[in-house]
């Protein structure tokens, strides 16, 4: 499409570096892991700050409680585990020990979406935003690129309350510039347009930008919003953009139940006069496959997003979508 050289970042590496930089300037920062950290974001932290790295083995419920205990002792824990174990296994510990108490515990859900497609649905979680989002007091950050991942670490530590950070395994295409500053609760308009609003998160921001450029070639002006905070959602920008375009498409590598699309629908249903199409994964367990196969199978490539948006714009009946809400 465009001839500009594209830069990609490995989210795990970006986070690993950011955590070390953060820990250098703030000695309250500690790292809590559950036997899956050294190859993820914990290796460099462990090397630099072995005394501040607490490994709890395959005990996520225990580790989450201990993170809460560390936080009441004045520490700023970052706890990492695969999404199913970070978000689901210890759900009650997150709810009671971390959120009800409003502690500065930062939970990193590694390998969100189809990151580890071949492992199958025990490890491929497409419901985490809905599950974690149902708990009061927690902030959900879902970065799209390297600069956002880096910023998310610093801003999560700064925010005096619990954060759930979704970490994808795929190399992330750079969307934002080096001096990028993330504001929690504020989305970024990454492409301007006035006929259609595309709201996307995580991996789907890059694909949505590509889809929007294809639409542009067809003479359709689409705005793309990178919704990197999923809770609280940037209500103002959703309303501002949708009142201009009157048409909204949400795109997420997540279930269409209780994800980004549902959150946007809640806003539009009460306040915004706009049509909505939710693009995401059906209410189902994921099939097994490699990342690219799954993205294609579930219609989340730029080309398939483009096709779906064209259908939507032609106001074709979309029976699948009408069943979902």
């Amino acid at each position: 499409m465009d001839s500009e050289k594209k830069i990609y970042d490995n989210p795990r590496k970006v986070i690993a570096e950011a955590l070390v930089d953060l820990a250098k300037r703030d000695d309250r920062v500690v790292y809590v892991s559950c036997d899956s950290s050294l190859g993820a974001s914990g290796g460099p932290f462990n090397k630099n700050f072995p005394q501040r790295h607490f490994e709890f083995g395959i005990q996520e419920q225990n580790a989450m409680g201990e993170a809460a205990g560390l936080a009441v002792s004045g520490k700023i824990p970052f706890i990492a585990a695969y999404v199913p174990f970070a978000a689901f296994r210890c759900f009650e510990q997150i709810r009671d020990d971390v959120c009800k108490t409003r502690l500065n515990v930062n939970i990193m859900g590694n390998n969100c979406g189809f990151s580890v497609g071949p492992l199958g649905p025990t490890h491929v979680i497409i419901e985490d935003v809905g599950v974690i989002g149902s708990v009061p007091n927690i902030t959900i950050i879902s970065p799209a690129d390297g600069p956002q991942y880096r910023e998310a670490i610093f801003k999560a530590a700064e925010l005096d309350g619990p954060v759930y950070l979704r970490v994808h395994r795929q190399e992330a295409r750079r969307i934002h510039g080096d001096g990028y500053s993330l504001k929690i609760g504020r989305a970024d308009r990454v492409l301007e347009g006035d006929e259609l609003t595309i709201i996307a998160t995580s991996t789907m921001v890059a694909n949505s930008i590509d889809a929007a450029l294809m639409l542009k070639a067809k003479g359709i002006s689409a705005e793309v919003i990178n919704m990197s905070t999923l809770k609280p959602l940037d209500r103002d920008l959703v309303l501002e953009s949708s009142s201009k375009t009157k048409k909204v498409v949400t795109v997420e590598e997540h279930s269409v139940v209780n994800g980004l699309g549902s959150a946007v629908a809640n806003i539009l249903a009460t306040s915004g006069p706009a049509l909505l199409k939710k693009i995401g994964i059906e209410d189902n367990f994921a099939v097994v496959g490699e990342y690219d196969e799954l993205i294609d199978y579930y219609g989340l490539t730029a080309e398939k997003i483009f096709d779906k948006i064209q259908d939507f714009l032609h106001r074709e009946e979309d029976d699948e979508n009408s069943n979902r809400l």
Binding site: V30, Q51, G65, E66, G69, L70, V72, D96, D97
Partner: peptide, 22 residues
Amino acid sequence: ISTGSLGQGLSCAVGMALGARL
């Protein structure tokens, strides 16, 4: 620290003890 759901408090206490030592 807040408690109530059984089984969770000892983990919090372990975290507090680690934090105090640190």
